[in-house]
Design a binder for these strands. Structure first.
Length: 698
DNA sequence: AGATTTACTATTTTT
DNA sequence: TAGTAAATCT
């Protein structure tokens, strides 16, 4: 075993955290401060001083992060850290619940529903409950989300291990509560848990007198990374686990809390010192990543926020150049500018893998993607539909799920919807029957589909044929290949022009599944994987000579020499959905902060003054750009075709009646081409663009 | 009646 | 591109 020389390998800030004694501890770690490194050394230190590795529980934000962390701790110790429990809250919950179930004599199998499955099931429930068939329109995604997250995040009915130190969930309308109840019932009937059920049930185990005690004794050290992005359930789990010994070390940066939309509560980290009055508090504020110029922008932007620990990053990297602000006329120009700049930097010797373009929402990158493809710039795309989210992957997994659990309603919904001749009505009838089945053989009997039309029967038979083919195989990999060779392949070929790619994906999935003995273990983990694991499954090597396009959310924890933040326009970044809400606005600003602090040496902020729509409408630059003091940035005027820099002129006129009003605009934009020949500044005039806007409520 | 096709619209972020 | 509503097919 290798002896670690902590004083040589860590700075003073980090050392304090690693070598502290036991007890509750909050580490406020700024961006680029070596947070991961610090946690890793802390774990290594615990093992070195004689703690049993399997008594250490390390909770991370993604599965990939957990895997990396374990590897690095192993490398530090010159052995392996296999005994350490490392994973996300969800994956650890899964492990613990499976163990608990089997030791209590139940079959340790249950289905895990991801977001899409949850929605599918919720919709089926609402349809059957005849929700809003007459008076209301079909529920909006927002209402759906409300109901699901209510059932997910509700803390009712849990005997409180911790005393009532956490705020209660706000009461909702009785109608929604009723739907939530029905939804929960259906989950139970399907032997399924959604993401928050995993956490919820873990909490229930902690509340159990004996099991809770056993868990508290087992895990003597709880370490949580990215604590700012935990939700109410997760905070209570940490509390419930550490209640006895108090060895909870949480690390996070309140300035990087960007997951409120999915239940993360920034109050968890802000409140930690009050929760644990004897908690030690450390700050890691030395930033090793970015130039001082980039940090100035980050620090300055964040000062606008109120809800936070006041802290400022201190840079030690060499000075560089000021971040560059690039106003452009149209979204096309923006895409061309970025592509141009990337090629220019590459020709000057910068590696593509050191560059990234970040954006608020996947859709913002479409034009840029086209531009990159056109110019043969290889890139790796993060965001949008993920590998495990692709339709054919989910279809295949649905087959495996049904074989494992006939009652799995969301899987049936998916599978039946694919069949010709089976529509929503027949599907829900068949599923209602399947819910009472005990084994797959029950649904395979002829009597099961009595009374359906001939066309339906055909669809059903082809469905069963696929299931039979898969069931005959041993192990998840072979099952996946069986499905890829069944009637499902014909379906793909018939349905999608890119069916070959999709079959390739299935082969990738099969190869990935080879790592698993039984379908059960495979399915349990697949539902919890993050996209990084998916990309590995799809065979993409992110370290290739490729640049990265990513949403800001997916860029969390990563860094590049050169970062472009694009589409910094009002209503795009910050999102228009956050406009009316101050706390959401603060979250958007934190998102901007995360984006800025991904850059090591060069940062470009780009925006276009107009947005292509049914006509062309003017967009002011992002609030976050407007807030920045001009002296922190270098403003880059695009000379070619750009006259004075900003597109020419805007004229607008308002009119309207009581409910809505109209805006007429004339806009003149200069064209900016990508090839030298096109760059002869042509002026195009758009006029009389009409946009309708609702009056803000008085 | 239920399935399918077509036209249209609005479009965040995800363990 | 996904979700919906209206029109059309079986």
């Amino acid at each position: 075993m290798r002896q670690i020389d902590y004083t040589r390998e860590l700075n003073q800030e980090q050392l304090d955290v690693v070598l502290q004694g036991d007890g509750p501890c909050l580490v406020l770690a700024g961006a680029g401060s070596g947070k991961t490194r610090t946690i890793m050394y802390r774990v290594a230190h615990l093992i070195e001083r004689g703690e049993d590795p399997s008594s250490i529980l390390l909770l991370t934000f993604t599965i990939k992060a957990a895997r990396e962390m374990r590897e690095r701790v192993g490398a530090l110790l010159g052995g392996d850290a296999g005994g350490v429990w490392a994973g996300t809250f969800h994956s650890i919950a899964h492990r613990i619940l499976r163990r608990a179930a089997s030791s209590a004599g139940y079959a340790p199998t249950f289905t895990i529903l991801d977001q899409e499955d949850s929605r599918l099931l919720m919709k089926a429930v609402m349809k059957e409950a005849k929700y809003d068939v007459t008076s209301r329109r079909f529920p909006s995604p927002a209402v759906l989300q409300d109901i699901i997250s209510f059932t997910r995040n509700t803390l009712r009915n849990i005997p409180d291990v911790l005393g009532e130190r956490y705020p209660q969930h706000e009461p909702l309308s009785s109608e929604i509560e009723e739907l939530a109840r029905l939804y929960a019932e259906r989950k139970r009937a399907a032997q399924a848990m959604d993401f928050d059920d995993l956490l919820h049930n873990w909490l229930l185990l902690l509340a159990h007198p004996e099991i809770g005690m056993a868990l508290r004794e087992k895990f003597q050290h709880i370490l949580v990374d990215e604590y700012q992005d935990t939700n109410a359930l997760q905070a209570r789990i940490v509390r419930g686990l550490a209640e006895g010994h108090g060895n909870a070390l949480v690390v996070g940066d309140d300035a990087q809390s960007i997951y409120a939309f999915r239940g993360a509560d920034i109050q968890n980290i802000l409140r930690f010192p009050k929760e644990w009055p004897d908690a030690k508090m450390f700050k890691l504020l030395t930033n090793y990543r970015s130039t001082p110029e980039i940090l100035d922008v980050a620090n300055d932007s964040l000062r606008q926020n109120v809800e936070q620990f006041q802290k400022e990053l201190i840079g030690i990297a060499a000075r560089g150049s000021k971040p560059v602000l690039v106003p452009l006329g149209t979204a096309h120009q923006e895409a061309r500018f970025i592509a141009d700049k990337i090629l220019k930097l590459r020709s000057e010797g910068a590696a593509l893998r050191g560059m990234a373009v970040l954006f608020r929402s996947s859709a913002h990158s479409h034009l840029l993607e086209m531009e990159l493809v056109k110019r043969d710039i290889p890139y790796d795309y993060r965001g949008g539909v993920r590998f495990f989210g692709r339709a054919h992957i989910k279809d295949t997994l649905a087959c495996l799920r049904i074989i494992q659990n006939v009652k799995d309603e969301p899987a049936w919904l998916r599978l039946l919807n694919l069949q010709q001749g089976i529509g929503p009505a027949t599907a829900s009838r068949l599923i209602a029957q399947a819910r009472t089945a005990e084994a797959l053989d029950d649904v395979m009997e002829d009597g099961f589909v009595a009374g359906v039309s001939e066309r339906c029967r055909e669809g059903w038979q082809s469905c069963l044929a696929t299931l039979r083919a898969a069931r005959a195989e041993n192990g998840p990999a072979k099952m996946v290949r069986a499905i890829a060779g069944s009637a499902y392949a014909a379906y793909l070929e018939h349905e999608y022009p890119d069916w070959r790619d999709r079959l390739d994906d299935l082969e990738q999935l099969a190869m990935f599944a080879e790592g698993y003995q039984d379908a059960d273990a495979f399915l349990g983990e697949v539902a919890l994987f993050d996209d990084a694991v998916g990309r590995a499954a799809a065979g993409g090597a992110p370290t290739d000579e490729k640049m990265v396009l990513s949403t800001v959310h997916q860029a969390k924890g990563l860094e590049w020499d050169t970062v472009f933040i694009m589409h910094l326009m009002d209503g795009c970044f910050p999102s228009r959905y956050a406009e009316d809400d101050e706390s959401q606005m603060e979250e958007e600003r934190r998102l901007f902060y995360v984006a800025v602090t991904r850059a090591r040496r060069r940062l470009y902020l780009t925006y276009s003054a107009t947005r292509a729509g049914d006509g062309l409408s003017f967009m002011p630059p992002s609030l976050f750009v407007q807030e920045l003091p001009p002296h922190l940035m270098e403003r880059m005027e695009i000379r070619e075709g750009f006259g004075g820099g900003m597109p020419a002129r805007r004229e607008s006129r308002w009119s309207g009646d009581g409910d809505s009003f109209y805006q007429e605009e004339s806009i003149r934009v200069d064209r900016y081409g990508s090839t030298p020949r096109e760059r002869t500044s042509t002026t195009t005039v758009f006029k009389s663009t009409m946009s309708v806007k609702k009056l803000p409520p008085r």
